[in-house]
Design a protein around this nucleic acid. Structure first.
Lengths: 129, 129
DNA sequence: CGGCATCCACACAGATACTG
DNA sequence: CAGTATCTGTGTGGATGCCG
């Protein structure tokens, strides 16, 4: 049921942190962003997320989607056809969350260069033993 | 060096995801939000974050702060006095990130009730075996 | 006080095999 | 295709103890 490094001792944490950690979880972030664009099928999501670097395992994708569905952020539409077809989309609640997350992603993209410069400066200083 | 569940195979990931995961990391989120309010000393941070539920271990706080400092988001001001005093604050870059993160936190607080209702509905349906 | 070093449990992530 | 089930390595995160 855990979706990230987050859920250890789930019941010991306040709901606030729990929701926050689902949304900010490793794959949760990327899923929300992808779905903000448009609904995706299971393997579409898998491929889309793989595009950013290393992909999600099928298992983690399933787990994260289930957590997000349970939280009411993602809607799962399973059509009873053969072969199976399942579409994932954002609920209204999920759209709101995803927009916040996108804010972060956009910021990251814009400022990544500065972050990398900061890192080089930091490493430079530290390396002078 | 890893700050969350994120950093496995760090070099295999694009910088974009790396930065995003630092910022959205378990403790990174809470640290940024705390520091947005005002600068904190090390143990102030520890206590402040503990207030939200289960606290940070000293080790994780150190690790996360170092990662954020390296990324140029957090400024570390160590005064050479006895007993030691270290103040952490946001850089301009960090303030921008923190504001995005706060957006998420605010949303979470506002919508938490809806999420919990969604969860109950979900569990209710699932429990009818 | 503010760390760093070490040890360890556990749950996360991946691989694989199987099902509807 | 879209999962479920199971097994396993290993990284994360916590606890403890020491240092400046």
């Amino acid at each position: 049921m855990a979706v990230s490094s987050a859920e250890t001792n789930a019941e010991a944490m306040c709901p606030y942190r729990l929701v926050l950690e689902h949304v900010t979880s490793r794959w949760g972030v990327l899923i929300l962003i992808e779905l903000l664009d448009r609904p995706h099928r299971f393997s579409e999501l898998r491929r889309a997320i793989g595009g950013y670097g290393r992909g999600v395992s099928e298992k983690m994708l399933t787990q994260t989607l289930q957590t997000l569905e349970r939280d009411g952020l993602v809607h799962r539409d399973a059509k009873p056809v053969i072969p199976p077809r399942v579409d994932y989309s954002l609920t209204e609640l999920g759209r709101e969350a995803a927009e916040q997350v996108r804010g972060l992603a956009v910021w990251t993209e814009k400022r990544m260069g500065d972050v990398e410069k900061a890192r080089e400066a930091y490493d430079e200083v530290k390396s002078r033993t």
